[in-house]
C-alpha cells in the first residue's frame, strides 16, 4: 500500500485491483481512470457502484473484475448505500475494535448529475466518510447515448441529434462540482485519466479527510463521442489543454487550480477530434460554438479569480 504523495509511476506497479477480461469497450476512458483510482486508493477498500457502464461491463454475472468487496445498487442510491456501509462499519469498529475502512462510490454522470443527485446531496450533508467518484462520459452511454445533465452544449446524442431544428443539445452542462462544493465538504476536485499523477494524488488527499469527498473524472467514450479507440487519453488531454476540463480542487473551501494552462490550445482542437461535437466547426453553427466557448472561458476565469483569492 502507498503512503504519502505518489511521485513515480513505479510506485503504483502491482497495485491493480481489477482483473482483465472485463467487457468494457476497447479503449474505454472510464476504465483507465477507475484503474488508476483503485491503484491509488488506501486499503482495505469497499467499492459501491451505481448502475452504469462500469457496473454492467465489470460484472457479467457470474464473473467480476473486482478484487475488492463490491456492491451494485440502482442508479439513484450509490451514495445512500455508501453511507449505510460507513455507518455499519462505524458500529462494528466501536463494538469489536477499530479497523479503518475506505469506501469509494462510483457513479456515471447520469447516475450522479440526474438520477442520484438527491442521494448524493444527502450523503454529503450527513458527513459520511467516503469518496464519491463521478466518472463523466457526458451522456447515458450505457443505454444508447442519450443526453444527460452533463452533456455539453451542442453535443449530438440520440435524443439531441443535429438537424434543421436543433444543433445538438440546446442547454449548457450542469456545473456539478459547484453543487457539491456548496455542501461545504472537506475535499472536492476534478481530474482526468490523462494526468495520472494529478489524479492519484487527489485520491490520496480525498481519503485523508474524515468526511465526504468528491472527484469528478472526465471519461472519454469512444462509442458515444465518436473517436478512434486509440484516442481516449489524447482526447482527455486535449480537454485539459483547451481549458474545457479545468483541473482544480476545493480543499476546505479553498480553490486551487492544480494544473494551470497558461497557453491554452483553441477549443476547436478538442471539438474536431470527436464526431459528436465536430459539427460546431461548420460556419452555420458558429453561434453555438461561441456560446460554448463563452461558457468554457467564463468558468476558467471564475476559477482563476477564486484560486487567486486563496493563493
Amino acid at each position: 500500500m502507498l503512503v504519502g504523495e505518489v511521485k513515480s509511476i513505479k510506485e503504483l506497479y502491482g497495485l491493480d485491483l481489477i482483473a482483465p477480461g472485463h467487457r468494457a469497450c476497447a479503449g474505454c476512458g472510464a476504465l483507465v481512470g477507475v484503474r488508476q483510482i483503485l491503484m491509488a486508493s488506501k486499503r482495505p477498500l469497499i467499492v459501491v457502484n451505481a448502475t452504469s457502464c462500469l457496473e454492467v461491463t465489470s460484472t457479467p454475472y457470474p464473473q467480476t473484475m473486482w478484487k475488492v468487496p463490491w456492491v451494485h445498487l440502482l442508479f439513484e442510491n450509490a451514495a445512500t448505500a455508501a453511507s449505510g456501509i460507513e455507518a455499519a462499519l462505524k458500529v462494528l469498529s466501536r463494538k469489536y475494535g477499530r479497523q479503518e475502512h475506505y469506501i469509494i462510490a462510483f457513479g456515471g454522470d447520469g447516475g450522479t448529475f440526474d438520477i442520484g443527485i438527491q442521494a448524493l446531496s444527502g450523503a454529503l450533508e450527513r458527513g459520511h466518510r467516503f469518496l464519491y467518484v463521478c466518472y463523466d462520459n457526458e451522456a447515458y452511454m450505457n443505454t444508447g447515448i442519450q443526453r444527460s445533465g452533463a452533456t455539453p452544449l451542442g453535443a449530438a446524442t440520440t435524443t439531441s441529434p443535429v438537424g434543421t431544428k436543433i444543433v445538438g443539445k440546446t442547454q449548457q452542462k450542469k456545473d456539478l462540482l459547484e453543487i457539491v462544493v456548496a455542501h461545504r465538504i472537506p475535499y472536492a476536485a476534478t481530474a482526468s485519466p490523462s494526468h495520472w499523477k494529478d489524479l492519484v494524488n487527489k485520491v490520496r488527499k480525498a481519503q485523508s479527510y474524515d468526511g465526504p469527498s468528491f472527484i469528478h473524472l472526465i471519461a472519454p467514450c469512444t462509442r458515444g463521442w465518436y473517436f478512434d479507440t486509440s484516442e481516449a487519453i489524447k482526447v482527455a488531454r486535449l480537454a485539459v489543454e483547451t481549458r474545457y476540463w479545468p483541473l482544480y480542487e476545493v480543499e476546505n473551501g479553498r480553490y486551487r487550480i492544480t494544473h494551470p494552462v497558461p497557453n491554452p490550445k483553441p477549443l476547436e482542437e478538442f471539438l474536431k477530434v470527436q464526431r459528436r461535437l465536430s459539427h460546431l466547426l461548420l460556419p452555420e453553427n458558429a453561434e453555438v460554438l461561441e456560446r460554448l466557448k463563452a461558457y468554457v472561458n467564463e468558468r476558467w476565469e471564475r476559477l482563476q479569480r477564486l484560486s487567486a483569492c486563496f493563493a
Binding site: 509511476i9 503504483l12 506497479y13 491493480d16 481489477i18 482483465p20 477480461g21 472485463h22 468494457a24 469497450c25 476497447a26 479503449g27 474505454c28 476512458g29 476504465l31 483507465v32 484503474r35 488508476q36 485519466p193 490523462s194 495520472w196 469512444t222 478512434d228 479507440t229 486509440s230 484516442e231 481516449a232 487519453i233
Partner: peptide
C-alpha cells in the same frame, strides 16, 4: 501500462514491457 484499460501490459524482469495477448482488445491507446 498506466493508460491501459484492461490491464493487459506487464513489466518484464528487465524493466521493459510485454503484452498479454489473451486480454488485449487492441484499442491502441
Amino acid at each position: 501500462w498506466i493508460y491501459c484499460p484492461e490491464p493487459a501490459i506487464q513489466k518484464r524482469n528487465d524493466g521493459k514491457i510485454e503484452f498479454d495477448y489473451d486480454y488485449c482488445k487492441g484499442c491502441g491507446i
